[in-house]
Design a protein around this nucleic acid. Structure first.
Lengths: 128, 128
DNA sequence: CATGATGGTTACCTCGTGGTGACTATGTCC
DNA sequence: GGACATAGTCACCACGAGGTAACCATCATG
């Protein structure tokens, strides 16, 4: 091994470690992907919600807020009679979508590897 | 949008969703990467521990155990006087290392995007 | 004997994630 | 008027991730 190589690699602020923030917990990557799958990378709240089976209303809003303040998405409110809110990818968001798609493509192409994985069904939330 | 497309995409058991398990929380991906950086994809406990700044002894062992039972790594104990334990990548583990490296490479090549990200420093555990 | 390195276990505690459900507000449909 | 959809907030609660620190066992060193 190259001395001092990996140690440098894993400082708290290193790039790889920060990338993981995107995938860590939550629905961020799935929202990015869902938005990207829409024309123009935008969708209204209800559409998003229905596109993400299993997400709760609270987590939807919470994650969207975080993504907005992170600069990944924009939130545009149409002050219409039934309030219409549209979320759309920012240029920054589109960059991260690229990564997300790579990861998801890998998953689709390596589902056999995923099948071989013996993830303990006990943890990971309420085991589905 | 293609009807039924994204909805199918996000069933609990879909491939993309399972890939996220690898990156969700914990040190799994970092351990995979660290092992891959070693000759032969193997390292002893102490080496691993020193290569992962910030990991606690407990989380190290816990994560290694989970990875072992998942089939990502092998654990070989040399019943020597000072116990020597070596962890090594399995063929399955090597496949996932591929993904991990892709993600980390992306991070290194897109550090400017990461810099633009305004992650709220409040959450994410105890803010580092 | 005390210390340290080997690898690991355990109890204890914090807190972020994330779910449920109630509630707001407004306009339309029946 | 009541139900429903729009979008969202808030209180409440459960649980797992994950950290700290003490402890076990053994041998070598000082």
């Amino acid at each position: 091994m190259r001395p001092g190589s990996d140690e440098q690699e894993w400082r708290e602020d290193c790039a790889p470690r920060r990338v993981l923030e995107i995938f860590a917990t939550k629905w961020t990557s799935m929202i990015l992907h869902t938005l990207a799958a829409r024309h123009g990378g935008a969708a209204r709240t209800g559409v998003l919600h229905r596109s993400l089976p299993g997400i709760s209303k609270k987590m939807m809003v919470q994650t969207l807020r975080e993504m907005e303040s992170s600069g990944l998405i924009d939130r545009r409110v149409e002050s219409a009679v039934p309030p219409a809110v549209e979320y759309s990818l920012t240029p920054l968001g589109r960059r991260f979508v690229g990564l997300v798609e790579v990861v998801y493509d890998w998953g689709r192409e390596n589902s056999d590897a995923l099948d071989q994985l013996r993830i303990r069904a006990s943890s990971r939330r309420r085991a589905g």
